[in-house]
Structures are given as structure tokens and as C-alpha cells.
Computed example of a mutant assay.
Amino acid sequence: MSAVKIEFFHDVICSFCFPMSYRMRQLKAVMPEVEVIHRSFALVKEPSDFDRMFGSRENAKNEILSHWFYANQNDDLHRFNIDGMKQAVFPFPSSMNTLIAAKAAYFISGDDLYWDLFDALQESLFMHNKNVEDIEVIEATVQTIGIDLTSWRQHFADEKTREAVLADLKLAEDYQITSIPTLIVDGKHTISGAQPLTAIQSVLNEISLQKKLSAVETEASCKFRDGKFECD
């Protein structure tokens, strides 16, 4: 398959992004030529957004846990600890601290380290029921995957890291993305939702075939240029 670039839009607090990230890793294993670029999407940019969406931050938890139930069914490994989250006493986390945290890892060592921290933060929330909005929880998670904490703190505090997250959010608007997980393939093809691995592969194979056919047409084609037909 020809090289394909996938922009993976997601949020740490997005339940369906958890099984989708696992599948994207499977995809990379079977299609190593695929380039995965991680993009931020904030479901809850500010804590006050809980009031607008759910009436209150307290009300949010019950509805969000219903999403966890269906996400756990979607998850190939069924990893969600829903009962544990019901017993947790902290308010449901908002998005920005974790998105900036993952982007800080990107500035240390690119998309691979971003992905490692993103997955570790999702595991902290969905499996271990940690408050991933809390900086101490984030820093503990950072250390579990071997990131130098001093370097990470510098990038986390750097305004350019937040600006990079905001640039991702603007890009999502430009792509007219309204839900996640979403994959943007080669800047123009959209795959929405936590799709099965086979479905993602099928779409990518079709896109690759279209690119090959387009290349053949370009190499053997006739164009009307400057009043004359020119054939390659």
C-alpha cells in the first residue's frame, strides 16, 4: 500500500477514543507505512462547559458513565472499570490539562511519545479511575512511562504547547469535525467513530487503490493546453 497520512483527532476523556487508540496501534503493526499524527479535540474545554452540556458537573458523571457502558462493549478488551468510577468522589475531568500534557510529550520526542502518554492517561482514567485533570495524577502518569519529569514540566508550562493544542482545535473546526474519534486520511477522507480494525483497513486500501489509479491516469493522459492536445 502506498504511504498514507492519518490525523487522529481525540481527547483523553473520550471513552470511544480508548478502544480506537488500541485499534490504531494494531493498524500500525499491520500497516507500518501508515503515518499517524495525533491531534487534540477538547470535548470539555473548560469545567464550566459541564454546566452548559449537562446542567451541572455533578449531573455529567451519570450520563458520561452510560457512554462508558457502550464504549466498553465496543472495546476489544473490555477494559473499562465502570463500577470503580461510580465510587470515585472527584468531579469528572475536563479536557485541557491532559491534552496539553500529551502535547508536552510530543515536544520532547514526537508523536510516538505523545501516543504513549495519551494511552497511559486514558488507562489512568478508564481502568484505574484516576482524576486525570489533577496535575499530580498527570505527573505520576508521566513518570510511569519513563519521561523525564523536569523536561516535561518545562514543556507543559510553555505557552507554545497550549498554542499547539489550540491550533489542533482550530484544525478540527476547519475539517468540520464535531465528534471523536475521527480520522482524517490524507487531509480529505474522513473516518468517524470507533470503527472495527477491518473497516479501517478496508477504507485505507480503497484510498490507496484510488491513489494508484490516479497516478496511472496522470502518467498516461492527454490534456488540452494552450490550444493544443498534449499526451504524456
Rank of each mutant, 00 (worst) to 15 (best):
A101N: 04
L117M: 03
A29F: 10
I108T: 04
F229N: 00
L77A: 13
E136R: 10
S202N: 13
D232F: 08
S221A: 08
A140N: 11
D226I: 05
V216W: 06
I6W: 10
A104H: 01
D168A: 06
S214M: 14
H155D: 07
L209H: 07
Q122K: 00
K103R: 06
P32Y: 02
D111C: 10
C17T: 11
L166E: 14
D112W: 04
K223T: 14
N129G: 07
V30G: 04
M20F: 15
V216R: 03
K86C: 11
M127N: 01
F16K: 04
V4P: 00
D76Q: 11
M31W: 09
S208D: 14
M127D: 00
Q176I: 11
F229K: 00
Y22C: 06
E173H: 02
Y70Q: 14
E219M: 10
P181D: 03
E63D: 12
L171C: 08
H128S: 09
E173G: 13
M20Q: 12
L166T: 13
L183V: 06
N205F: 14
N129D: 02
N74T: 15
F118R: 01
L43C: 04
G55V: 14
K130F: 04
F50S: 07
V34S: 02
S109R: 13
D226Q: 14
N81V: 04
K170P: 08
K212M: 15
F80G: 05
F107Q: 09
E133F: 02
S208V: 10
S179D: 15
W152P: 04
L171W: 05
Q87L: 15
S151Q: 15
F18H: 05
F118T: 03
K170L: 15
T161Q: 01
G187I: 08
G110D: 06
R39T: 08
K130W: 01
E58K: 05
H155I: 04
N129Q: 02
C231N: 01
P47M: 09
S179R: 09
D51Y: 04
V142K: 05
N59G: 13
V30H: 05
Q201P: 13
W68Q: 00
F69A: 15
E7V: 09
Q201W: 11
A140V: 08
A102E: 08
G55L: 15
I177V: 10
A3F: 07
K212Q: 14
I135R: 12
R225W: 14
S179A: 15
K5M: 10
V89L: 15
G146N: 02
D232H: 08
V34R: 00
S48R: 13
A164N: 02
V142W: 01
A167V: 12
L213N: 10
M31T: 10
T190W: 00
H155P: 01
A172W: 12
S40M: 10
